[in-house]
Structure formats: structure tokens, C-alpha cells
Amino acid sequence: MTNRRRAVVALACFATLVLAPGTALAQNAKPADKPFAEHHLALQLSDSDPKKEGLVISVAYNLLKYYGPDKVAIEVVTFGPGIDLLKADNANRKLVDSLVAQGVRFDICGNTLDTIARETGQRLAVNPNAIEVEAGVAQLLSLAESGYTIVRP
């Protein structure tokens, strides 16, 4: 094997180790839409409770105010009854849309949506700013493994 070929193989092995899921570099990766964020927070919402919805919204607004929208990455992950926050007709729709405009991401659990569709025969109308993820809990796990702090207000 030539020296050049050895160098390429060594570089490929190094990149595989450094960028593999679970390594320090992968865990500290910045989200593409918030490259300068110094703080990463995932807010879990799994209850259908207007007070908890309000608390999640309040926490997100307070963090944006405290750190500034470029310094904090906030992702709200909803699943189970918590997806009520992201229904198209939710009373907090304007607040959610305002947070989205400031860079907050709102995830909605696809498994929950599929279950509701099977039970009711129709797909739930959701906020168009909601981002469907395959599984809300899996999204939280992935975020935690990427260095996000998970908070359940």
C-alpha cells in the first residue's frame, strides 16, 4: 500500500471515529439553523393541559429574551396528548407562530398523529409550522445525545 493510500485510509478511519454518533464531536454539533447557539434546550410537552402549554411558551420566550435568539436553540417536542398545542385551532397559535418566527422549532409526533388518524379515520389538522418527526420520544433521545438539555415544564 502506498503512503498516499495509507493516509487516505487513516483519514477515513479518523473521520468515522470522530463523527460517529455518540462521540463528543457529534454530541456537540450545532444545529444548521442555529450555528452560533451556545445553549441547546428541548422542551418536552406530553400533556394536554393549557397551563403546561402556557408554561412551555413562557419558558421559550424567556430564554429568547435572556440569551437572544442567535445564542439559544430551542426545540419543543410534542407527543401523546401534548400535540394539542400544535392543533391548527389551538388558542396559543399566534404565540407558537411568533416563536417559530424567532427560530424556535416545534416538533409533532408522527406516531401520535397516525394513531389519531387510525382511531378517527381522518388526519388531524395541525399548525403548518409544526415539523412532523417519526416519534417524539425518539426525537428527545436524539436531541439529548446531541447535547440538548431536556426540560419538562
Results as ranks from 00 to 15, higher is better:
P21Q: 05
P21S: 10
P21R: 07
P21D: 02
T23Q: 07
A24S: 13
A24T: 11
Q27K: 14
N28W: 12
N28A: 15
A29V: 12
A29H: 15
A29E: 10
K30T: 13
P31D: 14
P31C: 03
A32N: 12
A32S: 09
P35R: 11
P35C: 01
P35V: 05
A37K: 05
E38N: 08
H40N: 08
H40S: 09
L41G: 10
A42Y: 03
L43R: 00
Q44C: 04
S46G: 13
D47L: 08
D47T: 08
D47E: 13
S48P: 04
S48Q: 09
E53Y: 00
G54V: 05
I57Q: 02
I57C: 05
I57N: 05
V59C: 12
N62L: 04
N62R: 06
L63K: 08
L63Y: 14
K65P: 06
Y67C: 08
D70P: 06
D70L: 12
V72Q: 08
V72G: 00
V72K: 03
A73C: 15
I74T: 03
I74F: 02
E75W: 10
V76L: 06
V77M: 08
F79Q: 15
I83H: 03
L85W: 06
K87Q: 11
K87C: 15
D89S: 10
A91R: 13
N92F: 14
N92P: 08
R93L: 07
R93A: 15
D97E: 12
D97F: 10
V100D: 09
V100K: 01
V100R: 03
V104G: 09
V104P: 02
R105L: 09
R105W: 13
R105Q: 08
F106Y: 11
D107M: 15
D107P: 12
I108F: 07
G110F: 01
G110S: 06
N111M: 14
L113T: 10
D114W: 04
T115K: 12
T115Y: 07
I116V: 14
A117L: 02
R118N: 12
R118I: 02
E119Y: 03
Q122S: 15
L124A: 04
L124Y: 00
A125K: 08
V126T: 15
P128H: 04
N129K: 03
A130S: 04
I131P: 00
